[in-house]
């Protein structure tokens, strides 16, 4: 399902990121732990098709990500990869529902499952709300719903719990796991948050001990 091979990347010549090879099957989950500056986000960006590595390849469902050209890669990403960021980044001019519909629009999906998704995440009653009326936890759940709106094969989460309190953090991780299992999707969470550790058994640590 997801294969990363021989990935090399550096922002500066003398500072190379050591990126391990990854092979994940459908429904598998992985926690990548590492301190700030260890290159966690860089890995996620490379896996998500947002940042082209200097060497190596990423295969999702048999397709080489960086073998795709500009617009095709964008479309592929919209269809197959759901990305969740540390901050929710809900598009403020749009309502919760419209944020999901936008994701559907860009990848050409119909968005029939949007309402189920919102109700699974407990935010169906907020579907007409604007982002500035949501709490932090609600906003993060909206961003999860948006990342899942196109039923992705791969879910990538970058520090999804960093700005949340304990209760919300546990909730978000639980929801991510549940949804990933439901879609039978690969779930990769990148974090330095120790609270997440107990939830996912399959872990790797990069850039020294976390």
């Amino acid at each position: 399902m997801l294969i990363a091979k021989n990935i090399e990347f550096s922002y500066q010549k003398d500072q190379k990121f050591n990126i391990p090879d990854l092979t994940l099957k459908e429904g598998e989950q992985l926690l990548i732990l590492g301190q700030s500056g260890s290159g966690k986000t860089t890995i996620l960006n490379i896996l998500g098709g947002l940042l082209k590595p200097h060497q190596g390849e990423v295969f999702i469902n048999g397709t080489s990500l960086y073998g795709l050209s500009g617009a095709a890669l964008d479309k592929f990403r919209g269809n197959n990869i759901g990305i969740i960021f540390q901050k929710p980044h809900i598009l403020a001019p749009l309502t919760v529902e419209e944020n999901l519909k936008l994701a559907n629009f860009f990848s050409g999906k119909d968005g029939r499952k949007n309402e189920n998704l919102l109700s699974d995440l407990g935010i169906l009653h907020k579907r007409k709300a604007k982002v500035n009326t949501l709490s932090e936890g609600e906003a993060q759940r909206v961003s999860i719903a948006r990342a899942l709106a196109n039923s992705p094969k791969v879910i990538l989460a970058d520090e999804p719990t960093a700005s949340l309190d304990d209760v919300n953090a546990a909730n978000v991780v639980k929801l991510l796991k549940e949804q990933a299992e439901k879609f039978n999707a690969v779930l990769i969470i990148v974090t330095h948050d120790q609270r997440v550790k107990d939830h996912i058994a399959n872990q790797i640590t990069i850039g020294g001990e976390a």
């Binding site: 617009a71 479309k75 990403r77 980044h89 598009l91 936008l102 994701a103 860009f106 990848s107």
Partner: peptide, 12 residues
């Protein structure tokens, strides 16, 4: 916002 749209599948 534009970067987020790109992650959602929008082309440049």
């Amino acid at each position: 916002d534009l970067a987020v749209m790109r992650t959602l599948g929008a082309s440049s």
